[in-house]
C-alpha cells in the first residue's frame, strides 16, 4: 500500500478523465440516438433504412474494434488528406478518437432505447398537438422529445453506467484515463495486484456515485410530473 501511495494524485487525474470522457460523449450519444430513432420511425424509406443499418451495425461491432477502427482509420485518412499538401500531421489525438468512437457506438444503443419508447408513445399526445395547430416539428420538440427523455431516463442512466465501464477500453489507444494510469502505476511499482484492486474499487465508487445521482434525478423527475 505504501508503495502506491505517492501515485494517488495521478490516479485521481485518471479517474477524472474517465468521468470526463463519459460525461462528454454521453450527451452526444443521446442526441445522435434521438435523431436516429426519429429516422427509424420516419415514413421516408431511405432514412428508415439508414437508421436500421446504423443500429444493426453497431449492435454487432464490439466496442474495442470501433475504438481501434476510429483511431487507426482517422490516422490513415488524415495522413492521406495531408499528403498532397506536404503537411505532416502528428496523428489523431487518442482522447478525441475515443470520444468519437464512444459517441457513435452508444448513439446506436441510445437510438434503440428511444425507438422502443416511441413505439409505446400515446398517439393522443401528438394528435392533441395537431388539433391545436402545432407543426410536426413543434410537436416533436415540445411534446415528444421532453416526454421521451423523461420516460427513457432510467434506461439512459443504465447506459451511462455501461459507458463508464466501456470507456476503460480507451486506455488501449493510449488515453490516460483510470485504466491506463493504473497500468502505468502497476508497471512502475511492480504491484499489479494491489493496483488493479484499487482501480476496481475506484470504478465501483464512480458507478455507485453515478447510480446514486441517477436515482435522485429519477425521483426528482417523478415529482415534476
Amino acid at each position: 500500500m505504501e508503495v502506491v501511495a505517492p501515485y494517488f494524485s495521478f490516479w485521481l487525474k485518471g479517474a477524472a478523465l474517465t468521468l470526463g470522457l463519459s460525461a462528454a460523449s454521453f450527451p452526444i450519444s443521446a442526441f445522435l440516438g434521438l435523431i436516429v430513432a426519429f429516422a427509424a420511425v420516419s415514413p421516408s424509406r431511405p432514412a428508415a433504412l439508414a437508421a436500421a443499418m446504423y443500429i444493426n451495425l453497431f449492435r454487432g461491432l464490439p466496442e474495442i474494434i470501433v475504438i481501434f477502427l476510429i483511431f487507426y482509420g482517422s490516422n490513415i485518412v488524415l495522413t492521406m488528406l495531408a499528403q498532397p499538401f506536404g503537411i505532416q500531421i502528428g496523428g489523431t489525438n487518442p482522447a478525441i478518437a475515443a470520444l468519437i468512437a464512444l459517441s457513435i457506438q452508444f448513439g446506436s444503443y441510445a437510438a434503440v432505447i428511444f425507438k422502443d419508447w416511441m413505439g409505446v408513445f400515446p398517439r393522443g399526445y401528438t394528435e392533441a398537438g395537431l388539433a391545436i395547430g402545432m407543426t410536426r416539428l413543434q410537436i416533436r420538440r415540445r411534446i415528444v422529445v421532453p416526454l421521451l427523455l423523461r420516460s427513457a431516463t432510467p434506461a439512459l442512466g443504465n447506459l451511462f453506467l455501461v459507458m463508464l465501464k466501456i470507456s476503460a477500453l480507451a486506455s488501449l489507444i493510449g488515453v490516460e484515463e483510470l485504466s491506463r494510469t493504473t497500468s502505468i502505476i502497476a508497471g512502475s511499482t511492480r504491484e499489479p495486484l494491489v493496483c488493479y484492486l484499487i482501480a476496481a474499487g475506484m470504478y465501483l465508487v464512480i458507478s455507485a456515485v453515478s447510480g446514486f445521482v441517477q436515482h435522485r434525478f429519477e425521483v426528482a423527475m417523478e415529482r415534476s410530473i
Binding site: K165, S179, A186, P192, C195, Y196, L204, A208
Partner: peptide, 23 residues
C-alpha cells in the same frame, strides 16, 4: 452482483492475468 457488474471487464482481466499470479 454489484462488484462484478461494476468493474470493467478490462480491469478484471488484468487483475486475474497480471495481478493474481503475484499471490
Amino acid at each position: 452482483i454489484f462488484v462484478f457488474r461494476g468493474v470493467p471487464l478490462l480491469i478484471l482481466l488484468y487483475l486475474f492475468y497480471y495481478g493474481l499470479p503475484r499471490v
